[in-house]
Amino acid sequence: MLTIHFKLVEAMIAQAKQDHPIETCGVIAGVEGSNLPLRFIPMINAAASETFFEFAPKQHLQVWRKMDENDEEPVVLYHSHTDSQAYPSRSDIELATEPQAHYVIIPTNPKYGDEIRSFRIVNGTVTEERVQVVNEYKSLEQPIIENGALAAAEAV
């Protein structure tokens, strides 16, 4: 199950809507092993495509280094599907490389609903999991949504 703060869900949806019809993408970091998504990091889709995304390599390297310094890991890896159901595509499955992460897909065509869905993708096997959206975390840590991203979220 993915337990996630509502502000993070709002921020993902806001970014996805803003980027539509281009696929959006990003990561939510959390302390290693905590399974708690905290730090919201929107990423640039270097593919700038309606049907594909790829984290911009330079930004990817910087963000991963920062996570490493902070003893964080990618707890959520999210992207949007702009004209298909929110279920991992063949390339999503083939290219998944973070077995501990929750792979979240945000549909931006209302035809496919408006609920985010979350999956584990391990060795080519997809397992959907429940998403529990919470108003606050029980732990002391609270989500961090940096400037630009927060503005985008509030504009919803």
Binding site: A47, T51, F53, L61, S89
Partner: peptide
């Protein structure tokens, strides 16, 4: 040296 698989998909 850093080996980093792309985060990518469709």
């Amino acid at each position: 040296i850093t080996i980093l698989p792309s985060v990518a998909g469709g």
